[in-house]
């Protein structure tokens, strides 16, 4: 069950609108390697995870990713709030604006709407953790790319925070994978799905 705390996990204080940056950063809201995908992936995988510590980890990281989803949404909102028509046109934001105005919509920077096809929940602990480790690296690379494209320190600070969290999550999933493989029954030499009884 989820409870909401009226605060952001990391403080945001955008002082200067930047619609070009908003168009890029939205990929971490609804894009292939973004926070919506991450939270849905981990929160979906938790059910079939037989190792309780790892199921708990999936739940906890999935919860943190929801907090990150909020951060990215807030960032895009603060970068676009109060924009006038000329800014929308000059920045190329008009293609998004026509369908969503200044509303926040889960899509990738290129306009592809979020889809569950961006994620997998395979019901096999080893497969799922491998997927999760890859997901964290993909997210980290995306944040690297954002840092390459954006100069404003008000934007860079929260992005650097989110990037650092991806690296920590990768580390935790690596440890979880080791825990799963250590637990493999000595009869399960070829690592058939440990979730199947």
């Amino acid at each position: 069950m989820w409870s909401y705390e009226k605060r952001l996990q990391y403080p945001l204080n955008i002082k200067k609108r930047n619609l070009k940056a908003a168009q890029i950063i939205i990929s971490q809201y609804g894009g292939p390697d973004g926070e919506l995908g991450a939270s849905l992936r981990y929160l979906s995988q938790k059910y079939a995870m037989p190792n309780k510590k790892v199921a708990g980890l999936l739940n906890d990281i999935g919860t943190e990713e929801l907090a990150h989803l909020e951060l990215v949404g807030a960032l895009v909102y603060q970068l676009t709030d109060g924009a006038c028509t000329q800014e929308v046109i000059d920045s190329g934001f008009d293609k998004y604006f026509v369908d969503h105005t200044l509303g926040i919509y889960p899509q990738a920077a290129a306009g592809v709407p979020y889809t569950a096809a961006f994620m997998q929940s395979k019901g096999d602990p080893i497969t799922d953790l491998m997927e999760d480790m890859a997901a964290e690296q993909k997210a980290r690379t995306t944040y690297d790319n954002i840092l390459n494209l954006v100069d404003d320190p008000d934007i860079r600070e929260p992005i650097k925070f989110l990037r650092a969290r991806e690296i920590v999550h990768f580390q935790r999933f690596g440890e979880a994978l080791r825990m799963i493989t250590d637990d493999l029954d000595c009869k399960n030499f070829y690592a058939f799905n440990p979730a199947l009884k």
Partner: peptide, 20 residues
């Protein structure tokens, strides 16, 4: 709020570590 944010984050990060 600043103290709450910092202490909560320390707990968030430690929680993940304690999970494993």
């Amino acid at each position: 709020m600043h103290i709450i944010t910092l202490a909560s984050f320390a707990m968030d990060d430690t929680r993940l570590y304690l999970d494993t």
